[in-house]
Amino acid sequence: MTDQDILALFTKIIRDLLSDESITLTMQTKREEVPNWDSMNYINFIAAVEIELGVKFGVADIESFEDVGAIVAQTSAMLR
């Protein structure tokens, strides 16, 4: 799975979660920039990624992600 594949999957997950087809994530997207992507939906997003890809983020990771690119990078590392 390339980073671009992961990013595309993230876009699909967040569209489902927020019922908003207009969202397209980029590596530089920050959570605050996406309408309604609040802390609750952030947890739901993380859980959806974990279920979808069979990975597990640590508590420290989840607090430290600065942008979508950081989540993609960590996901990619876990998949390797």
């Binding site: 802390s39 609750m40 947890i43 739901n44 859980a47 959806a48 279920i51 597990k56 983020f57 640590g58 508590v59 989840i62």
Partner: peptide, 12 residues
């Protein structure tokens, strides 16, 4: 993790 992050007792 979910407990520490969100006090969520029943995981998704």
């Amino acid at each position: 993790g979910r407990w520490f992050q969100a006090k969520m007792e029943i995981s998704q």
